[in-house]
Design a protein around this nucleic acid. Structure first.
Lengths: 199, 199
DNA sequence: AGTTCACCTTACTCGAAGTAGGTTACCTTC
DNA sequence: GAAGGTAACCTACTTCGAGTAAGGTGAACT
């Protein structure tokens, strides 16, 4: 309009653009506070376009979450490929994770905030992200650890994911804590256990 | 109406009743899906009443969360008073927590679901609940552990809270896992560390 | 040049949050 | 036991945002 005439775009490109901007808006305003009109305006397109591409506000959120999840998976999987031991694999994975949450704030923001949308797809979607991580960890463990109690292994994986997620949120409040330091803290408790610190 | 004529109630009692019902509705429908009209109707009162007592939908949610948090604190604090060692204190606290989340589903449901309300009070409120738990744990630790690196101790507390929260959610999918078993799983990783299981 | 299909718009409906202002039952005080 | 004050309560509204119906426009291919 003012600067450049609003241009027509091929479907795929417009879609990427919409997701990119929606990710920004959701991350900065929060899901419920962000309005579709607002997102549409920033994209430079009208609201029904968003609905044509994503069906609903939640659908748009879903697309954003899925993309973030994919990015997280790639990063963590890639990090663990060359590992030589359980300890090494765990450390590499953790480091990759803590680097991710620092470098890709918006993506992480989407993944960390549980949805009020209980019963709807979005909560499911976020849960799915964690499942992805626990599966990865469980797989690593079954490779390196004594197998036996499957339920216990599963519980341990959940445990690790939850612990790291929380630690990541803690890191947001502590700019001075580097991914390396966070990794060390995590490894310390996870690997040696708290007993090592008892007096 | 049908049964008993809608009765007037003193302020405090009506307030308790509203919170009780709101907790139900939020837990079963989810925050965003639940409507104030709906809650008002179930209470047997008109919508402006809710606003007179709680100012906003979020205010009502806040009241529910605060009450649940208080309950959780009482339970966990009470559990750790007679502890004789770090290990014992940790175990007692964990057990109390896992019992709580099983027995008071609705309360836990409110506490576990992060809000989309970033920037608003509710997210802050939930974060506050975790702060309460981490403070408790940090206090326990400083009593039993070698003191030294405060930042590390704080990180460990966050870690424990996150881990347990996630494990609790995992328990929801596994009815067969008792609070006692959950506690044992948690203690196993937390206390001994993963190194104990490496082959 | 004209037809077509994908991209895009304006202008609406509908539901739920929040509010203005009036009404009724209970309790005090004489 | 009637006057009157006030806390509890209601009906009827505004507002705002999600979602939709129906129609406009431009580029590409005959």
């Amino acid at each position: 309009m003012t600067t450049a005439k609003r241009k027509r775009m091929p479907r795929a490109e417009r879609m990427r653009q919409m997701i990119e901007i929606a990710e920004e808006v959701f991350a900065e305003r929060g899901y419920s506070t962000a309005s579709m009109d607002d997102i549409a305006e920033r994209v430079g397109v009208s609201k029904p376009m968003l609905y044509e591409y994503f069906n609903s506000k939640e659908g748009l959120l879903l697309a954003c979450i899925q993309q973030s999840r994919t990015a997280l998976r790639e990063v963590t999987e890639r990090a663990t490929v060359g590992a030589t031991s359980a300890e090494d694999a765990l450390r590499r994975g953790l480091l990759a994770f803590f680097v991710f949450i620092r470098e890709r704030r918006q993506a992480w923001s989407l993944l960390r905030h549980e949805m009020v949308l209980i019963g709807t797809g979005a909560a499911e979607e976020i849960e799915q992200t964690r499942r992805q991580q626990t599966d990865l960890i469980a797989a690593l463990m079954s490779g390196y650890f004594e197998s036996g109690d499957d339920l216990r292994a599963e519980a341990s994986a959940e445990f690790v994911v939850g612990a790291c997620e929380r630690l990541a949120i803690w890191c947001e409040r502590h700019e001075d804590v580097s991914p390396e330091l966070a990794t060390e803290y995590a490894m310390d408790v996870l690997w040696s256990g708290l007993s090592a610190r008892a007096r």
